[in-house]
């Protein structure tokens, strides 16, 4: 059991931290997919915009900086829905996806122009960096942000689960995700449900922006791009058809990446992507509808 031997508590902590952040992103992507059947590739650029907001407001009180990050991300999320998603509602999935590529590139290009005004690439969000310090727990060094990430993820997921199961808008959102046409026939307001999903998705992107910026305060135009791609993969692997399988998929790919990275011999860690993506292919071949989607045909077949 050499693999297990190389995994210590610190790695496990990092794995949970990474999994937690990816789970939050998975929920953000999965919620919008649920009501719009749209895979939003530009989700990472929402996070990037939040990170830049944190960087540019570094001089402000931390709370004000974080609030403005959320405000910017949610506003951008709503604008994306109004200007892009809404006109695309009747388009094919391929067109929707490729359009969100274009939007992702657009936002990244805009960020590049804004960023380069002072002649240097990248901004540092220094004010919230102290969260990245390590604390010692039983002899193991764990970064504070890991606890924050896991705490925020658990809190956000429980809150969201309560909202979805206990409130009217939650019920309507779940109904729309399951059968939009019937939901509308029952009088569920499509725009209200979509706005709800888009706002919650934006709030989650804001939270992720804060967590990722703490981990890596150096903000560049491609901030969170790679994470978003990995989460999108995880979401489909887990089962994009349902929110909880999508979330588990996001968590799993984050968790597994950290574990595999620790388990690989040091000179082979450069091949981490190959190992993870090979696992992805194996899982997709064995369970094309989703790793966690039991006994049910998934929407992936329709896309």
């Amino acid at each position: 059991m050499t693999i297990l031997a190389s995994i210590d508590l610190q790695t496990l902590g990092d794995a949970f931290g990474q999994g937690a952040i990816y789970a939050l992103m998975a929920v953000g992507i999965g919620l919008v997919f649920g009501v719009l059947r749209l895979v939003n590739f530009a989700y990472g650029q929402l996070i990037m915009a939040g990170a830049y907001t944190l960087a540019y407001t570094s001089g402000w009180p931390v709370a004000a900086s974080i609030v403005s990050c959320f405000a910017v991300v949610v506003a951008l999320s709503l604008a994306m829905d109004r200007l892009v998603f809404r006109p695309l509602r009747s388009s094919s999935p391929a067109v929707m996806l490729v359009t969100t590529f274009a939007i992702a590139f657009l936002l990244q290009a805009v960020a590049l122009i804004i960023d380069l005004r002072d002649g240097q690439l990248g901004q540092v969000a220094s004010s919230i960096a102290p969260l990245n310090q390590a604390v010692s727990v039983g002899g193991v060094d764990v970064r504070k942000v890991t606890f924050v990430a896991v705490g925020v993820a658990v809190g956000a997921l429980i809150t969201l689960a309560l909202v979805l199961t206990r409130t009217t808008i939650g019920l309507h959102t779940r109904a729309a995700a399951s059968d939009f046409r019937t939901a509308r026939l029952l009088g569920v307001r499509a725009n209200r449900v979509i706005a709800f999903a888009v706002v919650v998705s934006g709030l989650l992107a804001g939270a992720v922006a804060v967590l990722l910026t703490v981990q890596n305060p150096f903000v560049q135009p491609d901030f969170a791009l790679e994470d978003t791609i990995i989460v999108l993969v995880g979401v489909v692997v887990g089962g994009i058809d349902r929110l909880w399988t999508a979330t588990l998929g996001g968590f799993a790919i984050g968790f597994v990446s950290v574990i595999v990275n620790a388990a690989l011999p040091t000179d082979k860690t450069v091949f981490l992507p190959s190992v993870v993506y090979a696992l992805v292919i194996v899982v997709l071949l064995l369970r094309p509808a989703g790793l966690f989607a039991w006994g049910r045909r998934a929407a992936v077949e329709r896309v």
């Binding site: 999935p93 999108l232 489909v236 993506y277 992805v280 292919i281 094309p288 992936v300 896309v303």
Partner: peptide, 14 residues
């Protein structure tokens, strides 16, 4: 053997 999003993601993995 795959289609839809699963095919998209698997080919992306390649």
């Amino acid at each position: 053997r795959l289609s839809g999003l699963a095919a998209g993601i698997a080919t992306f993995a390649v």
